[in-house]
Write a protein that binds this DNA or RNA. Structure first.
Lengths: 334, 334
DNA sequence: AACGGTTGCGGGAACGGTTGCGAAAAAAGT
DNA sequence: ACTTTTTTCGCAACCGTTCCCGCAACCGTT
């Protein structure tokens, strides 16, 4: 089955493809109104759909931007994509998304794929805070601007929009302490993601502020999903140390831990208080609802898209960094 | 910034671009080993990346398939994408995803966009069981095969893979009845999605099997997300009718309802038993864990990809329908 | 009648690859 | 030494658009 092209339309009407092209581009300044009408009419009589491949090859840009996300276990990234897609569509951009699965090699492959497809720019959240820095720089040198969101990296000529993890984490832990909790378990994130480092640092600093020193035994690697979070929690509980609160690096791991604790009969928040960073509506669906810092999702998408488009349109403009404030929601779990 | 092309490589080495093209395509039968080596060497010295636009324009296919999903509130669809992407990548296909947001107009727009990008095939879950049938047919007539997954439609020349909603729903409701529940609320899905209809029918039939007639007041429109589910539940509770169980059309709406019930002080499962269709791991993260029928996610992705690729490679092969069995998991909520 | 300006359209060269065909050169067979 | 075959490569067409240029017709002005 062949697609119909502007040449087919031109032949049908006995005119040149140039005119058809102009008419379909809406160039009413250079084509007669009546000719225009006939072209448009036969175009959709024949079911013509412009071949974007040809268009993109000719113009030297594709009007598509790539989005690379590290994972899909959290609804955050998917929701980000949904927002970004709606925003970008308004500005005439298509979107192509690639999932890295927390694997730097796959991320690199995604980058290469997007370059081959000649995307005009990339919105990305990295899966490792330094593994692929070379690749990001190469991409930017080639003229493909990148805007990092949420999980950003240092030392790259790119705009970025992040959340103030440190401050919000600090506030969260501080709140736990003020409620009288003293033995706070920290479900930490993997050391290769920058946000995890900031959150853990905040945990330590908050304890120190109240004259406590962080006990390394209370900091456990919680992973990124529910299973890993539950497993980490189980190991800690079996270790036998007393505890009365939990500060989670991320939502799913925390929910996994919570689920386990409830299975083991712990009462929340009486025996153990719970809170975490990067919570979503999920935190309000479990019982009891969980105190969390929510990512400013739509603001982040809005800013990221704006920064990226600005970079595309002004390649030499200075890069910007926008720090958004998370939204601390106190709920029944603390 | 200009991309480097095969012509740049050819000039650099003083040979023709044909040879470069052949070398880079790995055609060792038609190019000298030494020449090949030099070409490959300068290619990555110059940082050459093939322009897929040009390739796709020349060959008349793009090696990319489009995935259209109706929403992102459920983790199901994004997990499907993740699986499908991994599978398709193995077969050399790129993926471009589009989100319809439960809006037929947007879905149609997505279809158009994918056609313009000349995808080789489409994997889709519809947002309305009949609104865009015309569009699907047009797409297929033009030679773009579609494979429907999960939310399929009737009367279109396309392969599809679905879950046996009716049977699984029936089993779920039957199980509630056998546990002695008699006043079962049904959080129904929107009437424009086929799966919702099947599930509601199963609810009525299961009741009838036990000599009960479905009371229309116990069937409430539950919507698709948590907020809508909670709102629907609130309306029902305020209606004052007695009830001892809830059968939800979908997970998020059910979780929303559950959350509300717990807020209102209902004890689960003692006072009201809960279960739903299309559950995911979320059902195991809430307390108590919820009995649900889980979609055979990876099997569905695997089958859908296989069916689509088969259609792409054999345009005239008969279309297939695969019905997968859901996985009923009894948990604490019943 | 000559002239400058506008309007409407066609010709054709790109964009960056792939690929069939043919030719030159090299190798092999007689 | 003369075919024949094989290897290796260049030429040119093609994919579907866009867009620059040029040409003709028509207009109003002097």
């Amino acid at each position: 089955m062949k697609y119909v092209t502007i040449i087919d339309i031109a032949k049908e009407l006995g005119i040149s493809k140039s005119t058809v092209s102009r008419a379909l581009a809406g160039d009413c300044h250079n084509v007669n109104a009546e000719t225009m009408r006939r072209i448009v009419e036969t175009a959709d009589r024949l079911g013509y759909q412009r071949n974007e491949l040809a268009v993109n090859l000719r113009r030297q840009h594709t009007q598509t931007i790539g989005i690379i996300i590290p994972e899909v276990v959290t609804s955050f990234f998917m929701n980000f994509i949904e927002h970004a897609q709606r925003l970008l569509r308004k500005d005439g951009y298509r979107v192509i998304v690639a999932i890295s699965n927390e694997d730097p090699a796959q991320e690199q492959e995604n980058l290469r794929m997007l370059e081959q497809c000649r995307v005009d720019g990339i919105l990305m959240s990295v899966c490792h805070h330094e593994a692929n820095i070379e690749s990001y720089q190469r991409m930017i040198r080639k003229g493909i601007p990148i805007t990092f969101f949420d999980r950003a990296v240092e030392g790259v000529e790119a705009s970025r929009v992040v959340v103030d993890d440190y401050i919000m984490s600090f506030l969260l832990v501080e709140a736990l302490i003020r409620k009288g909790r003293r033995r706070i378990v920290h479900l930490a994130g993997p050391k290769h993601v920058r946000n995890a480092i900031a959150r853990s640092q905040a945990y330590r600093d908050a304890l120190r502020k109240f004259g406590m020193e962080a006990d390394a035994r209370y900091v456990v690697a919680g992973g990124l999903n529910a299973e890993e979070g539950a497993a980490a929690m189980r190991r800690f509980v079996e270790g036998g140390l007393p505890f009365d609160a939990l500060f989670g690096f991320t939502e799913m791991a925390t929910l996994g831990a919570k689920s386990l604790l409830q299975q083991l009969g712990y009462r929340i928040p009486d025996e153990v208080a719970l809170c975490c960073m990067s919570g979503t509506t999920l935190c309000t669906l479990v019982h009891p609802e969980i105190t969390a810092v929510e990512q400013p999702l739509s603001a982040m998408a809005e800013v990221a898209c704006r920064l990226l488009i600005h970079q595309i349109e002004h390649p030499d403009a200075p890069k910007e960094e926008v720090v958004l404030r998370g939204d601390l929601r106190f709920r029944a779990s603390t």
